[in-house]
Design a binder for these strands. Structure first.
Lengths: 250, 250
DNA sequence: CGACGCGTTGAACATCCTCAAGAGAGGTGG
DNA sequence: CCACCTCTCTTGAGGATGTTCAACGCGTCG
């Protein structure tokens, strides 16, 4: 069942029939991971791993014992694009229980070499990842802790809501507070205090691995959240053809 | 003279003769820019702009009047890769006097569509850019102001030194202090104080658009600078075939 | 039971920001 | 030539923001 991969790639630009046929012929292994397990490590080569279920973090461990999280993957995300041509420069770890589908490294190499239109789609996916990273850089560099936190919660909710993975203002977010801290560049204690404030103010809460949005409008305003910042890298024509609402239903 | 473009792309993986021939047939316009001029703005399409001379910043202006700088381009860098398939999400501004060489947007589209091996090289370039951004994210999220500053100065010097653009511990760095502040996510005043400290400690100084490194070892230690973090995205085989020293000569 | 992970809180402190103001260099116009 | 800008660098003072250290409660698990 490579249909999920096809649907995922299709977000970055419509695939042709030949591309779909090619993808359907590729192998697909399905691997489950438990919370905290490493899905792949630095240095590994791409197998076009697709997160089919669950959430995962892209992160790097630092020499001083610290950690920086570069992004959070939701179902449908390709998580090892950074390893397309060379070994990955960071690792990906499962947040909750995950399912990852992957092809073989050999097949990826063949695809990249022989299927230009698929290579172009992968290139768009990489560009999208780079764009999302720039979005995070703005948060790390230029926003206060409450704004950063609110923005992250909005991003998590928004992306899962797009995939019909949110209901009644709730979605999965199986993290501990130190995960949020390492994503936002904050200390654990301060992250806790910011989260408590958001909870007390009735904006949102994270508990038992569930994110619950209580006041989307105020949360999005606090975090200066604009969903356009993380839309896939599509042609302008595609965007105009498929307009979307700018506000999540909570 | 597309040789500079050929040399630039060649860093990401050896080009074949056909690729070189193709690039030599592409048009090449040469445009000078003065300090502060915008080289291209958000929304523009890629023309495979190559910074041939001078330095430039990739940046985004924020709604609150702030600014975040995502990276600094040195000669040989492709500066509009983010606009390969869709409009750019940020702008690039000349720091000092610059020279930019570019082909036409039409030619870029043709190249991306019809020259798979060149597309692969561009994809590697995009991956390199994403990797550098992650490196900056670590700085923004997990390093103190002095470490961030020292790391930036090391990066600027190292990259120009690689290109033989540094001499006697000096290289061009035509910025004002607020540029450094917006790159590091610091306030102008605090940036000034950090720079003063680095100067007083005899590590490095920035004056009149020139960066002067006085004690590379201590500066690199303070900034936890590792040149591997910003090496182009090459195959492991290439790396092993061309080992390099890990320390700049100052 | 004890160990461990996680959330929680308080207190003291370091870092960094904002505001305000002045110095110096360079440009422009009278 | 001087007055008057503007831009940048510079410094001080006060305060907001975020960190570190230390501790405790709670639930889970061996």
């Amino acid at each position: 069942m490579n249909r999920l991969l096809i649907a995922s790639l299709n977000r970055f630009g419509p695939l042709g029939d030949a591309d779909r046929d090619y993808l359907l012929m590729c192998s697909q292994t399905i691997t489950p991971f438990e919370a905290g397990q490493r899905i792949f490590g630095a240095g590994e080569r791409s197998r076009l791993r697709l997160l089919a279920r669950g959430l995962a973090v892209k992160q790097r461990l630092l020499a001083d014992g610290g950690r920086q999280i570069f992004g959070i993957a939701v179902p449908g995300d390709l998580i090892d694009l950074c390893a397309l041509f060379v070994g990955a420069d960071h690792e990906v770890v499962a947040l909750g229980a995950c399912e990852v589908r992957a092809m073989s490294a050999r097949e990826v190499r063949s695809m990249v070499r022989d299927q230009p239109s698929l290579l172009a789609v992968l290139c768009r996916a990489v560009l999208t990842e780079a764009q999302t990273q720039r979005h995070w850089m703005v948060g790390l560099g230029r926003r206060t802790a409450p704004a950063r936190t609110a923005n992250l919660l909005c991003e998590i909710y928004w992306r899962q809501n797009t995939l019909q993975l949110a209901q009644d203002g709730r979605c999965a977010f199986p993290v501990v507070q130190s995960d949020i801290a390492d994503a936002l560049g904050l200390s654990l204690v301060h992250t806790h205090r910011v989260l408590r404030t958001l909870r007390e103010e009735g904006l949102a809460m994270v508990r038992h691995g569930v994110l619950e949005i209580q006041d989307w409008d105020r949360l999005a305003a606090l975090g200066a959240f604009h969903p356009d910042d993380l839309r896939p890298h599509q042609d302008l024509a595609d965007r105009l053809a498929a307009p979307r609402s700018t506000r999540a239903r909570v």
